[in-house]
Design a protein around this nucleic acid. Structure first.
Length: 510
RNA sequence: GGCCCAUUCGUCUAUCGGCUAGGACGCAAGAUUUUCAUUCUUGAAAGAGGAGUUCGAUUCUCCUAUGGGCUACCA
Protein backbone atom coordinates (compact mmCIF):
# COMPACT_ATOMS: atom_id res chain seq x y z
CA UNK A 1 0.00 0.00 0.00
CA UNK A 2 3.14 2.10 -0.08
CA UNK A 3 2.63 4.68 -2.83
CA UNK A 4 5.35 5.60 -5.24
CA UNK A 5 7.03 8.81 -4.14
CA UNK A 6 5.90 11.74 -6.24
CA UNK A 7 6.97 15.31 -5.53
CA UNK A 8 6.38 18.54 -7.31
CA UNK A 9 8.03 21.88 -7.68
CA UNK A 10 5.32 24.43 -8.39
CA UNK A 11 6.59 27.91 -9.15
CA UNK A 12 4.42 30.67 -10.48
CA UNK A 13 5.72 32.42 -13.58
CA UNK A 14 5.77 35.90 -12.10
CA UNK A 15 9.45 36.55 -12.67
CA UNK A 16 12.82 34.82 -12.58
CA UNK A 17 13.18 31.82 -10.31
CA UNK A 18 14.98 33.01 -7.23
CA UNK A 19 17.73 31.17 -5.44
CA UNK A 20 15.46 30.16 -2.56
CA UNK A 21 13.09 28.61 -5.06
CA UNK A 22 16.00 26.82 -6.63
CA UNK A 23 16.86 25.27 -3.30
CA UNK A 24 13.28 24.10 -2.85
CA UNK A 25 13.39 22.55 -6.31
CA UNK A 26 16.73 20.92 -5.48
CA UNK A 27 15.49 19.31 -2.26
CA UNK A 28 12.44 18.01 -4.09
CA UNK A 29 14.68 16.59 -6.77
CA UNK A 30 17.18 15.01 -4.36
CA UNK A 31 14.41 13.35 -2.41
CA UNK A 32 12.62 12.10 -5.52
CA UNK A 33 15.79 10.62 -6.98
CA UNK A 34 16.78 9.00 -3.74
CA UNK A 35 13.38 7.36 -3.38
CA UNK A 36 13.22 6.36 -7.01
CA UNK A 37 10.19 8.61 -7.36
CA UNK A 38 8.92 11.19 -9.81
CA UNK A 39 9.66 14.88 -9.96
CA UNK A 40 6.88 17.04 -11.35
CA UNK A 41 7.20 20.62 -12.52
CA UNK A 42 3.86 22.36 -12.34
CA UNK A 43 3.35 25.90 -13.50
CA UNK A 44 1.02 27.76 -11.16
CA UNK A 45 -0.19 30.59 -13.33
CA UNK A 46 -3.53 31.27 -11.72
CA UNK A 47 -2.74 34.92 -11.20
CA UNK A 48 -3.27 36.44 -14.61
CA UNK A 49 -2.39 39.89 -13.24
CA UNK A 50 1.12 38.98 -12.26
CA UNK A 51 1.99 36.78 -15.20
CA UNK A 52 5.35 37.68 -16.73
CA UNK A 53 6.23 36.55 -20.23
CA UNK A 54 9.44 34.56 -20.41
CA UNK A 55 9.32 33.47 -16.80
CA UNK A 56 8.31 29.92 -17.61
CA UNK A 57 11.15 29.51 -20.10
CA UNK A 58 13.48 30.95 -17.52
CA UNK A 59 12.41 28.34 -14.96
CA UNK A 60 13.01 25.52 -17.42
CA UNK A 61 16.37 26.84 -18.47
CA UNK A 62 17.53 27.45 -14.93
CA UNK A 63 16.62 23.96 -13.74
CA UNK A 64 18.25 22.44 -16.80
CA UNK A 65 21.44 24.43 -16.23
CA UNK A 66 21.63 23.22 -12.65
CA UNK A 67 21.03 19.62 -13.58
CA UNK A 68 17.72 19.39 -11.74
CA UNK A 69 15.90 16.91 -13.91
CA UNK A 70 12.15 16.94 -14.38
CA UNK A 71 10.17 13.78 -15.05
CA UNK A 72 6.78 15.31 -15.74
CA UNK A 73 5.88 18.79 -16.80
CA UNK A 74 4.72 21.08 -19.55
CA UNK A 75 7.71 20.23 -21.72
CA UNK A 76 8.25 16.68 -20.56
CA UNK A 77 4.64 15.58 -20.72
CA UNK A 78 3.22 12.86 -18.47
CA UNK A 79 0.05 11.05 -17.58
CA UNK A 80 -1.26 13.62 -15.14
CA UNK A 81 -1.42 16.72 -17.32
CA UNK A 82 -1.98 19.40 -18.20
CA UNK A 83 0.86 20.66 -16.02
CA UNK A 84 -0.06 24.29 -16.36
CA UNK A 85 -2.88 25.45 -14.13
CA UNK A 86 -4.36 27.88 -16.62
CA UNK A 87 -5.11 24.83 -18.77
CA UNK A 88 -6.97 23.05 -16.00
CA UNK A 89 -9.94 25.37 -15.62
CA UNK A 90 -12.52 22.63 -16.29
CA UNK A 91 -11.03 20.49 -13.56
CA UNK A 92 -11.13 23.23 -10.97
CA UNK A 93 -14.66 24.23 -11.94
CA UNK A 94 -15.81 20.71 -11.30
CA UNK A 95 -14.18 20.46 -7.90
CA UNK A 96 -15.44 23.85 -6.82
CA UNK A 97 -18.88 22.59 -7.77
CA UNK A 98 -18.45 19.58 -5.52
CA UNK A 99 -17.60 21.74 -2.56
CA UNK A 100 -20.55 24.01 -3.27
CA UNK A 101 -22.94 21.06 -3.58
CA UNK A 102 -21.71 19.58 -0.35
CA UNK A 103 -22.28 22.87 1.44
CA UNK A 104 -18.60 23.18 2.27
CA UNK A 105 -18.16 26.35 0.29
CA UNK A 106 -20.39 29.25 -0.65
CA UNK A 107 -20.68 32.09 -3.11
CA UNK A 108 -19.81 35.60 -1.98
CA UNK A 109 -20.95 38.66 -3.85
CA UNK A 110 -19.21 41.34 -1.84
CA UNK A 111 -17.44 43.88 -4.01
CA UNK A 112 -13.88 44.95 -3.26
CA UNK A 113 -15.30 48.25 -2.01
CA UNK A 114 -17.66 46.49 0.38
CA UNK A 115 -14.84 44.34 1.68
CA UNK A 116 -12.72 47.37 2.23
CA UNK A 117 -15.54 49.09 4.07
CA UNK A 118 -16.01 46.09 6.33
CA UNK A 119 -12.31 46.03 7.11
CA UNK A 120 -12.32 49.72 7.86
CA UNK A 121 -15.32 49.42 10.14
CA UNK A 122 -14.00 46.55 12.25
CA UNK A 123 -10.41 46.67 13.53
CA UNK A 124 -9.39 43.06 12.94
CA UNK A 125 -12.01 42.14 10.44
CA UNK A 126 -11.88 38.61 9.17
CA UNK A 127 -14.29 36.97 6.75
CA UNK A 128 -15.27 33.95 8.83
CA UNK A 129 -18.06 32.32 10.83
CA UNK A 130 -18.39 35.37 13.04
CA UNK A 131 -18.92 37.82 10.21
CA UNK A 132 -20.11 35.95 7.15
CA UNK A 133 -23.81 36.37 7.95
CA UNK A 134 -23.39 40.15 7.82
CA UNK A 135 -21.89 39.95 4.35
CA UNK A 136 -23.52 39.38 0.98
CA UNK A 137 -23.22 35.72 0.20
CA UNK A 138 -25.25 32.62 -0.56
CA UNK A 139 -25.44 31.85 3.15
CA UNK A 140 -26.81 35.20 4.24
CA UNK A 141 -28.94 36.09 1.24
CA UNK A 142 -32.34 34.52 0.45
CA UNK A 143 -32.07 31.79 -2.24
CA UNK A 144 -34.13 33.82 -4.74
CA UNK A 145 -31.78 36.76 -4.36
CA UNK A 146 -28.74 34.51 -4.90
CA UNK A 147 -30.38 33.07 -7.98
CA UNK A 148 -31.15 36.53 -9.29
CA UNK A 149 -27.60 37.74 -8.76
CA UNK A 150 -26.15 34.77 -10.58
CA UNK A 151 -28.55 35.15 -13.48
CA UNK A 152 -27.74 38.84 -13.65
CA UNK A 153 -24.16 37.80 -14.31
CA UNK A 154 -22.92 39.22 -11.02
CA UNK A 155 -19.24 38.41 -10.42
CA UNK A 156 -18.77 36.34 -7.31
CA UNK A 157 -16.09 34.37 -5.55
CA UNK A 158 -16.38 31.00 -3.89
CA UNK A 159 -15.26 30.93 -0.30
CA UNK A 160 -14.36 27.94 1.82
CA UNK A 161 -16.75 27.59 4.76
CA UNK A 162 -14.56 27.02 7.74
CA UNK A 163 -16.13 25.53 10.84
CA UNK A 164 -14.80 27.37 13.88
CA UNK A 165 -13.48 25.89 17.09
CA UNK A 166 -11.65 22.90 15.70
CA UNK A 167 -8.07 21.92 16.41
CA UNK A 168 -6.47 21.36 13.03
CA UNK A 169 -3.32 19.28 13.04
CA UNK A 170 -0.68 19.51 10.35
CA UNK A 171 1.93 16.81 10.21
CA UNK A 172 5.25 18.21 9.15
CA UNK A 173 8.34 16.06 8.73
CA UNK A 174 10.59 18.77 10.07
CA UNK A 175 8.41 20.29 12.74
CA UNK A 176 6.29 17.46 14.04
CA UNK A 177 2.63 18.16 14.62
CA UNK A 178 1.65 21.78 14.29
CA UNK A 179 -1.84 22.43 15.53
CA UNK A 180 -3.92 25.56 15.30
CA UNK A 181 -7.52 26.44 16.02
CA UNK A 182 -9.73 26.75 12.96
CA UNK A 183 -11.31 29.90 14.40
CA UNK A 184 -8.29 31.95 13.43
CA UNK A 185 -8.65 30.88 9.81
CA UNK A 186 -10.72 32.97 7.45
CA UNK A 187 -13.09 31.79 4.73
CA UNK A 188 -10.47 31.79 2.02
CA UNK A 189 -11.39 32.62 -1.54
CA UNK A 190 -11.01 29.43 -3.56
CA UNK A 191 -12.30 30.54 -6.89
CA UNK A 192 -12.94 33.74 -8.79
CA UNK A 193 -15.83 33.87 -11.21
CA UNK A 194 -14.39 37.04 -12.74
CA UNK A 195 -11.55 35.23 -14.48
CA UNK A 196 -12.84 31.70 -14.01
CA UNK A 197 -9.68 30.72 -12.16
CA UNK A 198 -9.07 29.18 -8.76
CA UNK A 199 -6.72 30.69 -6.19
CA UNK A 200 -3.55 28.95 -5.13
CA UNK A 201 -5.13 27.01 -2.30
CA UNK A 202 -7.80 25.23 -4.30
CA UNK A 203 -5.67 24.61 -7.38
CA UNK A 204 -2.83 23.33 -5.27
CA UNK A 205 -4.87 20.77 -3.35
CA UNK A 206 -6.79 19.55 -6.38
CA UNK A 207 -3.64 19.19 -8.45
CA UNK A 208 -1.58 17.53 -5.75
CA UNK A 209 -4.36 15.03 -5.25
CA UNK A 210 -4.97 14.35 -8.92
CA UNK A 211 -1.26 14.15 -9.64
CA UNK A 212 -0.88 11.72 -6.75
CA UNK A 213 1.72 13.80 -5.00
CA UNK A 214 2.99 12.06 -1.88
CA UNK A 215 5.26 14.72 -0.38
CA UNK A 216 4.70 18.45 -0.45
CA UNK A 217 8.13 20.01 0.02
CA UNK A 218 7.90 23.80 0.00
CA UNK A 219 9.04 26.95 1.73
CA UNK A 220 8.14 27.83 5.29
CA UNK A 221 6.03 30.74 4.11
CA UNK A 222 3.34 28.14 3.43
CA UNK A 223 3.22 26.79 6.94
CA UNK A 224 0.46 29.18 8.10
CA UNK A 225 -1.84 28.06 5.29
CA UNK A 226 -1.11 24.37 5.74
CA UNK A 227 -4.06 23.93 8.16
CA UNK A 228 -6.34 25.33 5.51
CA UNK A 229 -4.94 22.79 3.08
CA UNK A 230 -5.56 19.98 5.55
CA UNK A 231 -9.15 21.14 5.88
CA UNK A 232 -9.51 21.15 2.11
CA UNK A 233 -8.25 17.57 1.85
CA UNK A 234 -10.83 16.60 4.43
CA UNK A 235 -13.61 18.50 2.69
CA UNK A 236 -12.91 16.62 -0.51
CA UNK A 237 -12.72 13.32 1.31
CA UNK A 238 -9.07 12.82 0.49
CA UNK A 239 -7.69 12.80 3.99
CA UNK A 240 -6.41 9.24 3.68
CA UNK A 241 -4.10 10.09 0.79
CA UNK A 242 -3.07 13.49 2.07
CA UNK A 243 0.59 14.12 1.25
CA UNK A 244 3.28 14.47 3.88
CA UNK A 245 4.27 18.09 4.41
CA UNK A 246 7.79 19.43 4.66
CA UNK A 247 8.15 23.14 5.28
CA UNK A 248 11.68 24.20 4.57
CA UNK A 249 13.30 27.10 6.42
CA UNK A 250 13.78 30.26 4.41
CA UNK A 251 16.92 31.76 2.95
CA UNK A 252 17.57 35.04 4.73
CA UNK A 253 19.33 38.26 3.83
CA UNK A 254 23.04 38.18 4.74
CA UNK A 255 22.79 41.45 6.63
CA UNK A 256 19.93 40.79 8.92
CA UNK A 257 16.40 41.70 8.18
CA UNK A 258 14.01 39.35 6.47
CA UNK A 259 14.02 36.76 3.77
CA UNK A 260 16.26 37.03 0.78
CA UNK A 261 14.56 39.01 -1.95
CA UNK A 262 15.08 40.07 -5.50
CA UNK A 263 16.35 43.48 -4.48
CA UNK A 264 19.13 42.11 -2.28
CA UNK A 265 21.18 40.95 -5.21
CA UNK A 266 21.91 44.37 -6.59
CA UNK A 267 22.06 45.95 -3.18
CA UNK A 268 24.68 43.55 -1.80
CA UNK A 269 26.50 42.84 -5.02
CA UNK A 270 25.81 39.16 -5.57
CA UNK A 271 23.27 37.36 -7.72
CA UNK A 272 20.05 36.02 -6.27
CA UNK A 273 19.08 34.38 -9.52
CA UNK A 274 20.59 31.34 -11.21
CA UNK A 275 20.55 32.97 -14.65
CA UNK A 276 20.70 36.54 -15.76
CA UNK A 277 17.24 38.01 -16.12
CA UNK A 278 16.08 40.79 -18.39
CA UNK A 279 12.82 42.14 -17.13
CA UNK A 280 10.50 42.50 -20.11
CA UNK A 281 8.63 45.45 -18.61
CA UNK A 282 11.24 47.57 -16.89
CA UNK A 283 14.16 46.47 -19.05
CA UNK A 284 16.05 46.02 -15.80
CA UNK A 285 18.81 43.40 -15.81
CA UNK A 286 19.45 41.20 -12.78
CA UNK A 287 22.68 39.27 -12.64
CA UNK A 288 22.80 35.50 -12.54
CA UNK A 289 25.19 32.90 -11.19
CA UNK A 290 25.77 31.43 -14.59
CA UNK A 291 26.84 34.73 -16.10
CA UNK A 292 29.00 35.50 -13.09
CA UNK A 293 31.13 32.48 -13.90
CA UNK A 294 29.68 30.04 -11.40
CA UNK A 295 29.64 26.37 -12.19
CA UNK A 296 26.26 24.73 -11.79
CA UNK A 297 27.82 21.97 -9.68
CA UNK A 298 29.14 24.55 -7.24
CA UNK A 299 25.83 26.36 -6.98
CA UNK A 300 24.01 23.10 -6.36
CA UNK A 301 26.53 21.99 -3.75
CA UNK A 302 26.44 25.32 -1.95
CA UNK A 303 22.66 25.54 -1.98
CA UNK A 304 22.24 21.97 -0.79
CA UNK A 305 24.24 22.81 2.33
CA UNK A 306 22.15 25.87 3.15
CA UNK A 307 19.67 24.17 5.42
CA UNK A 308 20.89 20.62 5.20
CA UNK A 309 24.06 18.69 6.11
CA UNK A 310 25.12 15.10 5.56
CA UNK A 311 25.60 14.50 9.28
CA UNK A 312 29.37 14.62 9.02
CA UNK A 313 31.99 17.11 7.85
CA UNK A 314 31.72 16.40 4.15
CA UNK A 315 31.21 19.57 2.16
CA UNK A 316 32.14 18.89 -1.42
CA UNK A 317 29.54 16.60 -2.91
CA UNK A 318 28.43 15.82 -6.43
CA UNK A 319 24.76 15.66 -7.33
CA UNK A 320 24.98 11.88 -7.11
CA UNK A 321 26.41 12.03 -3.61
CA UNK A 322 23.79 14.54 -2.57
CA UNK A 323 21.08 12.22 -3.81
CA UNK A 324 22.53 9.36 -1.80
CA UNK A 325 23.06 11.32 1.39
CA UNK A 326 20.09 13.66 1.46
CA UNK A 327 17.63 13.30 4.29
CA UNK A 328 15.07 15.46 6.04
CA UNK A 329 16.48 14.23 9.35
CA UNK A 330 19.42 16.48 8.77
CA UNK A 331 17.52 19.51 7.56
CA UNK A 332 17.62 22.46 9.90
CA UNK A 333 14.47 24.20 10.98
CA UNK A 334 15.76 27.73 11.17
CA UNK A 335 16.40 30.17 8.35
CA UNK A 336 19.88 30.39 6.87
CA UNK A 337 21.54 33.65 6.07
CA UNK A 338 22.92 33.62 2.62
CA UNK A 339 26.73 33.71 2.77
CA UNK A 340 28.09 34.79 -0.56
CA UNK A 341 31.73 34.36 0.53
CA UNK A 342 31.19 30.67 1.13
CA UNK A 343 29.57 30.41 -2.26
CA UNK A 344 32.74 31.78 -3.79
CA UNK A 345 34.78 29.21 -1.99
CA UNK A 346 32.65 26.39 -3.38
CA UNK A 347 33.16 27.72 -6.85
CA UNK A 348 36.89 27.98 -6.25
CA UNK A 349 37.00 24.36 -5.10
CA UNK A 350 35.14 23.13 -8.15
CA UNK A 351 37.31 25.19 -10.46
CA UNK A 352 40.43 23.56 -9.00
CA UNK A 353 39.04 20.14 -9.79
CA UNK A 354 38.11 21.05 -13.32
CA UNK A 355 40.17 19.89 -16.26
CA UNK A 356 42.14 22.46 -18.19
CA UNK A 357 40.22 21.44 -21.30
CA UNK A 358 36.82 22.28 -19.89
CA UNK A 359 38.12 25.43 -18.26
CA UNK A 360 39.66 26.55 -21.54
CA UNK A 361 36.30 26.16 -23.25
CA UNK A 362 34.71 28.36 -20.62
CA UNK A 363 37.54 30.84 -20.92
CA UNK A 364 37.30 31.36 -24.66
CA UNK A 365 34.22 33.61 -24.53
CA UNK A 366 35.95 35.66 -21.85
CA UNK A 367 38.95 36.09 -24.15
CA UNK A 368 36.68 37.23 -26.93
CA UNK A 369 35.05 39.75 -24.61
CA UNK A 370 38.46 41.26 -24.07
CA UNK A 371 39.13 41.51 -27.75
CA UNK A 372 41.36 38.48 -28.11
CA UNK A 373 40.39 35.94 -30.73
CA UNK A 374 40.69 32.46 -29.18
CA UNK A 375 41.13 31.00 -32.63
CA UNK A 376 44.45 32.82 -32.92
CA UNK A 377 45.92 30.41 -30.37
CA UNK A 378 46.32 26.66 -30.26
CA UNK A 379 43.85 24.93 -27.97
CA UNK A 380 46.83 23.33 -26.30
CA UNK A 381 48.30 26.75 -25.55
CA UNK A 382 45.09 28.00 -23.98
CA UNK A 383 44.63 24.83 -21.95
CA UNK A 384 48.14 25.02 -20.52
CA UNK A 385 47.86 28.73 -19.76
CA UNK A 386 44.57 28.24 -17.96
CA UNK A 387 45.87 25.24 -16.05
CA UNK A 388 48.79 27.26 -14.76
CA UNK A 389 46.74 30.04 -13.24
CA UNK A 390 43.63 28.26 -12.10
CA UNK A 391 44.76 27.95 -8.49
CA UNK A 392 44.25 31.66 -8.05
CA UNK A 393 40.74 32.09 -9.39
CA UNK A 394 37.27 32.01 -7.87
CA UNK A 395 35.43 32.55 -11.13
CA UNK A 396 36.00 31.80 -14.75
CA UNK A 397 36.05 35.54 -15.33
CA UNK A 398 39.02 35.87 -12.95
CA UNK A 399 40.99 33.93 -15.51
CA UNK A 400 41.42 37.06 -17.58
CA UNK A 401 43.15 39.05 -14.86
CA UNK A 402 45.48 36.13 -14.23
CA UNK A 403 46.17 34.77 -17.68
CA UNK A 404 45.82 37.76 -19.99
CA UNK A 405 49.59 38.13 -20.26
CA UNK A 406 49.77 34.82 -22.07
CA UNK A 407 47.77 36.36 -24.88
CA UNK A 408 48.67 40.03 -24.96
CA UNK A 409 51.94 41.77 -24.21
CA UNK A 410 52.00 43.98 -21.12
CA UNK A 411 50.80 47.49 -21.84
CA UNK A 412 52.17 48.89 -18.62
CA UNK A 413 54.35 47.80 -15.75
CA UNK A 414 53.28 47.81 -12.14
CA UNK A 415 54.90 51.03 -10.79
CA UNK A 416 55.50 49.66 -7.33
CA UNK A 417 57.29 46.64 -8.69
CA UNK A 418 59.30 48.81 -11.05
CA UNK A 419 60.40 50.96 -8.18
CA UNK A 420 61.43 47.97 -6.14
CA UNK A 421 62.96 45.70 -8.78
CA UNK A 422 64.05 47.78 -11.74
CA UNK A 423 67.33 49.53 -10.98
CA UNK A 424 69.91 51.32 -13.16
CA UNK A 425 71.70 48.05 -13.76
CA UNK A 426 68.62 46.15 -14.76
CA UNK A 427 68.63 46.98 -18.51
CA UNK A 428 72.17 45.69 -18.78
CA UNK A 429 71.38 42.56 -16.82
CA UNK A 430 68.31 41.96 -18.96
CA UNK A 431 70.57 42.21 -21.99
CA UNK A 432 72.72 39.48 -20.55
CA UNK A 433 69.65 37.45 -19.73
CA UNK A 434 68.59 37.56 -23.37
CA UNK A 435 71.95 36.14 -24.37
CA UNK A 436 71.60 33.40 -21.80
CA UNK A 437 68.11 32.55 -23.05
CA UNK A 438 69.15 32.53 -26.66
CA UNK A 439 72.13 30.37 -25.86
CA UNK A 440 70.11 27.80 -23.93
CA UNK A 441 70.00 24.46 -25.72
CA UNK A 442 66.61 23.53 -24.31
CA UNK A 443 63.87 26.02 -23.52
CA UNK A 444 61.76 23.69 -21.38
CA UNK A 445 61.08 24.76 -17.83
CA UNK A 446 63.13 22.02 -16.25
CA UNK A 447 66.14 22.57 -18.53
CA UNK A 448 66.13 26.35 -18.61
CA UNK A 449 65.79 26.94 -14.89
CA UNK A 450 69.26 25.64 -13.87
CA UNK A 451 70.85 27.51 -16.76
CA UNK A 452 69.42 30.87 -15.73
CA UNK A 453 69.89 30.31 -12.02
CA UNK A 454 73.45 29.20 -12.70
CA UNK A 455 74.19 32.37 -14.62
CA UNK A 456 72.74 34.50 -11.79
CA UNK A 457 74.89 32.67 -9.26
CA UNK A 458 78.03 32.92 -11.40
CA UNK A 459 77.60 36.64 -11.76
CA UNK A 460 76.74 37.06 -8.10
CA UNK A 461 73.51 38.84 -8.95
CA UNK A 462 70.66 39.17 -6.49
CA UNK A 463 68.30 36.32 -7.29
CA UNK A 464 65.10 38.07 -6.29
CA UNK A 465 65.91 41.23 -8.17
CA UNK A 466 66.82 39.53 -11.43
CA UNK A 467 63.94 37.09 -11.39
CA UNK A 468 61.41 39.75 -10.53
CA UNK A 469 62.69 42.10 -13.19
CA UNK A 470 62.43 39.18 -15.61
CA UNK A 471 58.86 38.55 -14.45
CA UNK A 472 58.03 42.22 -14.64
CA UNK A 473 59.13 42.32 -18.26
CA UNK A 474 57.19 39.24 -19.27
CA UNK A 475 54.06 39.54 -17.13
CA UNK A 476 53.88 43.25 -16.36
CA UNK A 477 53.68 42.74 -12.64
CA UNK A 478 55.15 40.59 -9.91
CA UNK A 479 52.68 37.78 -9.82
CA UNK A 480 51.79 34.62 -11.63
CA UNK A 481 52.91 31.03 -12.01
CA UNK A 482 56.43 29.68 -11.92
CA UNK A 483 58.55 31.86 -14.22
CA UNK A 484 60.08 29.07 -16.26
CA UNK A 485 56.73 27.41 -16.83
CA UNK A 486 55.60 30.68 -18.33
CA UNK A 487 58.59 31.00 -20.63
CA UNK A 488 58.33 27.38 -21.69
CA UNK A 489 54.80 27.97 -22.86
CA UNK A 490 55.44 31.35 -24.46
CA UNK A 491 58.62 30.27 -26.19
CA UNK A 492 61.95 31.99 -26.77
CA UNK A 493 60.87 34.61 -29.31
CA UNK A 494 57.94 35.99 -27.35
CA UNK A 495 60.00 36.01 -24.16
CA UNK A 496 62.91 37.87 -25.68
CA UNK A 497 60.60 40.29 -27.41
CA UNK A 498 58.99 41.20 -24.12
CA UNK A 499 62.32 41.79 -22.42
CA UNK A 500 63.35 44.16 -25.21
CA UNK A 501 60.03 45.91 -24.94
CA UNK A 502 60.36 46.40 -21.19
CA UNK A 503 63.89 47.73 -21.47
CA UNK A 504 62.70 50.26 -24.02
CA UNK A 505 59.63 51.31 -22.16
CA UNK A 506 60.51 51.34 -18.49
CA UNK A 507 62.07 54.73 -17.69
CA UNK A 508 65.63 54.63 -16.46
CA UNK A 509 65.93 54.80 -12.73
CA UNK A 510 67.93 57.67 -11.21
C1' G B 1 -2.21 43.68 16.78
C1' G B 2 -3.32 38.16 16.06
C1' C B 3 -1.48 33.26 14.76
C1' C B 4 2.58 30.03 13.60
C1' C B 5 7.81 28.66 13.30
C1' A B 6 12.64 29.15 15.03
C1' U B 7 17.16 30.38 18.47
C1' U B 8 25.26 26.73 19.15
C1' C B 9 31.47 30.95 16.98
C1' G B 10 30.45 37.11 12.44
C1' U B 11 28.18 33.17 8.76
C1' C B 12 26.70 27.78 7.41
C1' U B 13 26.53 23.92 10.79
C1' A B 14 27.92 18.93 14.15
C1' U B 15 26.17 17.24 18.95
C1' C B 16 20.09 13.02 19.05
C1' G B 17 21.45 13.76 28.54
C1' G B 18 28.03 13.00 29.95
C1' C B 19 31.76 18.65 26.36
C1' U B 20 38.38 19.77 27.11
C1' A B 21 31.36 22.12 22.54
C1' G B 22 33.80 19.52 16.54
C1' G B 23 34.14 21.07 11.17
C1' A B 24 33.81 24.71 7.16
C1' C B 25 33.72 29.95 5.17
C1' G B 26 35.75 34.49 6.52
C1' C B 27 39.59 36.79 9.65
C1' A B 28 44.75 36.86 12.01
C1' A B 29 49.72 34.79 12.47
C1' G B 30 53.41 31.49 10.70
C1' A B 31 55.73 27.82 7.16
C1' U B 32 56.72 26.92 1.89
C1' U B 33 57.71 30.03 -2.71
C1' U B 34 62.56 34.20 -7.03
C1' U B 35 56.51 36.89 -7.32
C1' C B 36 51.19 36.41 -6.66
C1' A B 37 48.32 32.45 -5.50
C1' U B 38 47.68 27.37 -4.07
C1' U B 39 48.94 24.20 -0.02
C1' C B 40 50.12 23.25 5.15
C1' U B 41 50.28 24.61 10.49
C1' U B 42 48.46 27.55 14.39
C1' G B 43 45.15 31.15 16.64
C1' A B 44 40.92 34.25 18.06
C1' A B 45 35.65 33.21 17.89
C1' A B 46 29.44 30.16 20.15
C1' G B 47 25.22 27.19 23.37
C1' A B 48 19.89 34.51 24.05
C1' G B 49 18.26 35.13 29.43
C1' G B 50 15.60 32.97 33.55
C1' A B 51 13.12 28.95 35.97
C1' G B 52 12.29 23.71 36.28
C1' U B 53 13.12 17.98 35.32
C1' U B 54 17.71 15.14 36.30
C1' C B 55 23.36 12.49 39.60
C1' G B 56 24.27 15.53 35.29
C1' A B 57 21.66 19.78 30.78
C1' U B 58 23.75 22.85 24.54
C1' U B 59 20.56 18.57 24.30
C1' C B 60 13.88 17.65 27.69
C1' U B 61 9.68 21.26 29.70
C1' C B 62 7.91 26.25 30.71
C1' C B 63 8.36 31.62 30.70
C1' U B 64 10.74 35.94 28.70
C1' A B 65 13.62 38.08 24.89
C1' U B 66 15.10 38.14 19.97
C1' G B 67 14.70 36.71 14.82
C1' G B 68 11.59 35.00 10.90
C1' G B 69 6.97 33.85 8.36
C1' C B 70 1.77 34.50 7.56
C1' U B 71 -2.40 37.57 8.26
C1' A B 72 -5.32 39.64 -0.20
C1' C B 73 -10.57 38.09 -5.17
C1' C B 74 -0.69 37.01 -4.79
C1' A B 75 1.77 32.69 -4.96
Amino acid sequence: MQRKVRVRFAPSPTGPLHIGGVRTALYNYLFARQMGGDMILRIEDTDSQRFVPGAEDYINEALAWLGIGIDEGVREGGNYGPYKQSERRDIYREYVGRLLDAGKAYMAFDTPAELEAARAATPNFQYDASTRMQMRNSLSLPPEEVKRLIEAGEKYVVRFKIEPGREVKVNDMLRGTVSINSSILDDKVLYKKADDLPTYHLANIVDDHLMEVTHVIRGEEWLPSAPLHVLLYEAFGWADTMPVFVHLPLLLKPDGKGKLSKRDGDRLGFPVFPLEWHDPKSGEVSSGYRERGYLPEAVVNFLALLGWNPGDDTEIMSMQELIEKFSFEHCSRSGAKFDFEKGKWFNHKYLQEMSGERLAQLFKPVMAEHGVDPAAFDDEYIVRAVDMVKSRINFVSDLWANAAFFFVEPESYDPKAVKKRWSVDTPRIMGELIEVLEGAPDFSSAALEPVVLGWIADKGYHLGNVMNAFRLAVVGECKGPHMFDITELMGLDATVRRIHLAVERIPKAE
